[in-house]
């Protein structure tokens, strides 16, 4: 590197640049927070949906599935599963409840989680709420 560009110049760029972009990032996040009510479907977050999120988390669903594209890539995307299943929470519940305990020979199969009726309802409602988040029309099609 050239001699006219000194270490203290490099240091100043590091501190100044980092600080500036951290503040800019904070400002952008702050602005995002204020426009979230338009997109994040918060009016649909009921107590049941909140419980559903906890059920989703406590069974580590993200360990196989993706939700809005984040998670694991072993099983289908679930951000739009509600629409994929014909806008039906009943179909989601029926699928989860009917998983064979011992799996399917040679194939991937979702474990049987033995969810209570309450938890089953809640997780289905949580997935319904997730499908209502306005996320720039992702995924590109119904298959996720």
């Amino acid at each position: 590197m050239s001699k006219t560009f000194t270490k203290s110049m490099a240091r100043n760029i590091f501190y100044g640049g980092s600080l500036f972009f951290m503040l800019l990032f904070a400002a952008l996040v702050f602005d995002s927070e204020s426009s979230l009510p338009d997109t994040d479907n918060r009016q649909a977050i009921t107590e049941e949906v909140a419980l559903g999120k906890l059920v989703w988390e406590q069974n580590n669903c993200i360990g196989c599935h993706s939700l809005l594209g984040e998670g694991a890539y072993f099983a289908p995307e679930l951000g739009n599963v509600y629409t994929r299943f014909g806008n039906s929470t009943e179909a989601i519940k029926a699928f989860i409840a009917s998983r064979p305990k011992e799996g399917i020979p040679g194939r991937r199969s979702m474990p049987q989680f033995n969810l209570s009726e309450k938890d089953l309802n809640a997780v289905a409602e949580f997935l319904k709420y997730s499908s209502g988040i306005k996320n720039s029309n992702w995924p590109p099609n119904i298959q996720g």
Binding site: M1, F5, T6, K7, A10, R11, I13, F14, G17, S18, F21, M22, L24, F25, L28, D31, S32, S35, L36, T39, D40, N41, L68, G69, E70, I133, K134, N135, S136, W138, P139
Partner: peptide, 29 residues
């Protein structure tokens, strides 16, 4: 040390706002 400063300066200058590449499809503006 001069190299180190340049590298980490670039890392944070690009990387902090670069967080935005995770914000495309999760309901953010």
């Amino acid at each position: 040390e001069k190299w180190l400063y340049v590298i980490i300066a670039l890392a944070l200058i690009t990387g902090i706002i670069g967080t935005g590449h995770h914000f495309f499809w999760i309901g953010l503006p």
